[in-house]
Simulated assay, not measured.
Amino acid sequence: MPQMKVAIAGAGAVGRSIARELVRGDHEVMLIERKLDHVEPAAIPQATWIHGDACELSLLESARLESYDVVIAATGDDKANLVLSLLGKTEFGLGRVVARVNDPRNEWLFDDAWGVDVAVSTPRMLASLVEEAVSVGDLVRLMTFRQGDANLVEITLPDTTPLAGKPVRRLRLPRDTALVTILRGGRVIVPEPDDPFEGGDELLFVASAEVEDELRAVVRLGHPPEPGTD
């Protein structure tokens, strides 16, 4: 993967965890933190640390935010995350803005009108993981991508799935849908056309919201449903 420059606002537990993962991947990371007692360069020495308010335009200008590929608004304040997202998109022309949603009641605000490309709600993600654990064969929405009205969804194949043994190329997906990954045991499989499905596979798709019901039916039946059926 090419090296990216990523700016992260918020150096609390969430921001630091993201930064550590990114620096392990050899990406260039800048952390912006408003609280002085959270500014600890020794904690992640590979990152650039800036003490200041990420909602202040002058600070973002001095940090040369326009030179970054991605900004991640990861503070514990939804208002701050929205302001930074809007500034990142409108003032600095960033191509990718990811924002943390702390209060699920505010999710409706985190859309492209506020410059958000991807909104990540920790409470919703946790709830989705619980649903996934008890909903084999059903579709679980894991994340919403604000651009293009697409979602990251997961379907776990039951042991008796009609897809067992069939190659990936035989799965006739609805429009605006892509199979991204197959999780099998401890393996992450990038699907190739001739890879066979197995019972228990966790399938991750990117799909538009309007075709989710059709996708659910296709995976359950092993083929597109007949007209007039679910």
Rank of each mutant, 00 (worst) to 15 (best):
P2E: 11
P2N: 11
I8P: 00
A9Y: 01
A9M: 12
S17C: 05
R20N: 03
I32F: 01
E40S: 12
A43W: 02
I44G: 01
P45W: 12
Q46T: 10
A47H: 01
W49M: 00
I50V: 15
H51K: 10
G52A: 06
S58W: 14
L60G: 01
V70L: 14
V71F: 07
I72R: 00
A73M: 06
A74Y: 00
D77W: 13
A80E: 10
V83L: 12
L84A: 05
G95A: 11
G95W: 08
N102S: 09
E107L: 11
W108L: 07
L109Q: 12
G115W: 01
V116L: 07
D117H: 14
A119H: 04
S121L: 07
R124I: 08
R124K: 15
L126Y: 13
V136G: 13
G137I: 08
L139Q: 03
Q147D: 13
N151D: 15
N151W: 08
P158N: 13
P158H: 09
T161V: 12
P162F: 09
K166M: 12
V168T: 06
V168I: 05
R169T: 04
L171D: 02
P174D: 07
R175H: 07
T177Y: 07
A178Q: 12
L183A: 08
R184C: 03
G185W: 14
R187D: 13
V188P: 02
E192L: 11
P193H: 03
P196W: 14
G199L: 05
G200N: 06
F205L: 06
E210H: 11
V211C: 15
A217G: 11
V218T: 08
G222I: 09
P225M: 13
T229L: 11
